[in-house]
């Protein structure tokens, strides 16, 4: 299999609020240390996505999956690491400049809330046409033809193209978001919880649409979600993220059936099942550790982990291979 996207040691740190300007000035005058507290949103993340593969990324809100996705799609700059798309190293160009890069079209994204990601002043046509105008330089008749083709491909009747987002249903908006992203035929499509805001009945249709499009166009998917039951249906492989780090990865079916990391186990257990009562489940206690300047020697899950021991406080478990899977836990 050929590797499409190679992500190596990617980290993204944000400066946290910290002391006010006055305190900082006083410290600077006193010659004290100038380091500000940093939020470690993404830390040392490495993985690959092969051509034609669907990789799932799962984790709770605040685990850094959105930041990681925005780094990969080059909406924000990395603090460290490299992102290679085929032979092209993407991390060298600043996010601001990358908007006009020739490879911009190769990574596209479908946003979580389709309603919010379509400009309320744009019709569905204009929303879908925007990337085609800018990245493919299509105009006039060719543009109209292309927009109609993609819309039809996404199950959006052409007569809806003149509508504004608020005149469309949730499912139709999701289709506009998908049509816009695939219009330029990207190699990699990042899907950021594309069905989170939809009813189950619509969710199924959209998921099936995504699966068909992938086959037709030959894209790779990075599917981000906090819902493992959805990822299980669509993904070849999943990555489980917890507080900025990948804690487990492997084939979707086996991770879902037999999770190795205690966090994954909790995640799987938390998925509501139709024919199973919720009484006997693994219960997570406590709150996640702070992502601000975390201790590099303590497992990020320590404190919330039902199995945590002194070993977890002494050394951060590294991600190690176990057959076709990888786990970052001392006990797996």
């Amino acid at each position: 299999m050929t590797i499409l996207l190679d992500v190596a040691d990617v980290s993204k740190l944000f400066t946290a609020g910290g002391p006010g300007a006055w305190t900082r000035l006083k410290r600077r005058l006193a010659g004290g240390p100038q380091t500000l507290p940093k939020v470690h949103a993404v830390e040392d993340v490495s993985f690959v996505i092969n051509k034609g593969e669907t990789v799932g990324l799962v984790g709770e809100s605040g685990c850094g999956k959105s930041t990681l996705v925005r780094a990969l799609t080059r909406l924000v700059d990395l603090s460290e690491g490299s992102i290679k798309l085929g032979d092209r190293e993407l991390s060298l160009k600043a996010a601001r400049v990358f908007a006009r890069d020739r490879d911009r079209a190769r990574i596209q994204m479908v946003f979580q809330d389709a309603g919010e990601s379509i400009n309320p002043r744009f019709t569905a046509f204009d929303a879908i046409a925007d990337p085609l105008r800018r990245l493919r330089k299509l105009h006039g008749k060719a543009l109209i033809e292309r927009v109609e083709t993609v819309a039809t491909q996404c199950g959006l009747p052409p007569q809806l193209l003149s509508r504004f987002p608020h005149q469309l249903s949730g499912g139709q908006r999701a289709r506009v978001g998908i049509a816009r992203a695939i219009a330029v035929q990207p190699d990699l499509l990042v899907l950021d919880e594309p069905t989170a805001a939809l009813d189950v009945s619509v969710q199924v249709v959209i998921l099936q649409l995504l699966q068909r499009l992938k086959k037709d166009i030959g894209m790779s998917y990075l599917f981000v979600s906090h819902d493992l039951s959805v990822l299980r249906l669509l993904c070849d492989r999943v990555l489980v993220m917890y507080l900025g780090k990948i804690v487990e990865s492997g084939p979707a079916a086996t991770v879902f059936e037999k999770p190795l990391h205690p966090y994954t186990q909790a995640l799987v257990a938390a998925v509501p099942r139709l024919h199973q009562s919720g009484a006997e489940r693994l219960r997570l206690i406590g709150e996640p550790r702070s992502p601000i300047d975390p201790d590099p020697n303590v497992c990020r899950f320590y404190g919330r982990c039902p199995r945590g021991t002194d070993a977890c406080k002494a050394a951060m478990p590294a991600l190690r291979a176990l057959g076709d899977r990888q786990v970052a836990c001392h006990f797996a």
Binding site: Q203, V204, L207, D227, V230, L233, L274
Partner: peptide
């Protein structure tokens, strides 16, 4: 019930409303 993701083994088997 048939549209609930949990109900099916694969996406093709999931029924839509």
């Amino acid at each position: 019930i048939a549209a609930t993701p949990d109900a099916a083994a694969s996406l093709d088997k999931l029924a839509s409303v």
